[in-house]
Amino acid sequence: RKRVKSVSTDLNSYYQGLVRRYFPNVKLVVDRFHIVSMLTRAFNQVRVAVMKQFDPNTREYRALKNSW
C-alpha cells in the first residue's frame, strides 16, 4: 500500500478519508466525469436563478427555461 502513487476517485469525502488512511503516500485525483457533473449542476443552478428574475411571458425567460 505504501507504493501506491495515485488513486482516481469521485468527490465523496468518505472515499477520500479511506484512501488517505490506507494509502498514506497517495495523491488523490478526481476523475473528469465528476468534475464536469459538478460544473453542470452549478451552471444549471445559476441559469434557473437568473431565469426566475424574468417574467414568464418574456423571450429571455423562455430562452433560459430550455437548458438545451
Rank of each mutant, 00 (worst) to 15 (best):
R47G: 06
K5G: 04
T9E: 01
R32N: 09
L39V: 12
D31Y: 00
V29D: 01
V48R: 08
T58P: 01
P56L: 07
D55E: 08
L64T: 04
Y61T: 06
I35P: 03
V46Y: 04
Q16N: 09
F43D: 11
S6E: 11
Y14N: 13
V36K: 03
V29G: 00
Y15C: 06
T40V: 03
K27W: 01
K2L: 04
R32D: 07
L18M: 15
K27D: 11
L64S: 04
K5Q: 12
R21Q: 14
D31K: 00
R3P: 05
S6I: 03
P24V: 06
G17H: 08
R62P: 00
R3G: 10
S8G: 09
V46K: 06
E60L: 06
L39W: 03
R32P: 02
T40H: 04
T9K: 00
V36T: 07
I35R: 01
F54G: 10
V50E: 03
Y15P: 00
M38Q: 11
F33V: 07
S67G: 04
K65D: 13
R1N: 13
S8D: 02
L28N: 01
L28T: 01
I35Y: 03
R3S: 14
S13G: 10
V50F: 01
R47W: 06
L18G: 15
T40L: 04
D55W: 02
S8W: 02
N44K: 10
A49E: 15
H34G: 06
A49K: 15
W68Y: 12
R21I: 06
Y22D: 12
Y61V: 04
A49Y: 11
L28S: 02
S13L: 14
V7R: 00
V29M: 04
V29K: 01
N12M: 06
L11M: 14
R1A: 15
R62Y: 02
F43M: 13
V4D: 01
S67W: 04
R20F: 07
G17M: 08
Q45N: 11
F23E: 04
V48I: 14
R62Q: 15
V48L: 08
R1H: 12
F33I: 05
K27F: 05
N66A: 12
P24L: 05
R47Y: 04
R62S: 11
Y15S: 02
L18E: 15
R21P: 00
H34P: 02
V19Q: 07
F54I: 11
Y14R: 10
N66T: 12
A49W: 10
K27G: 01
V36A: 10
Y14F: 04
V7F: 06
S8P: 00
W68N: 14
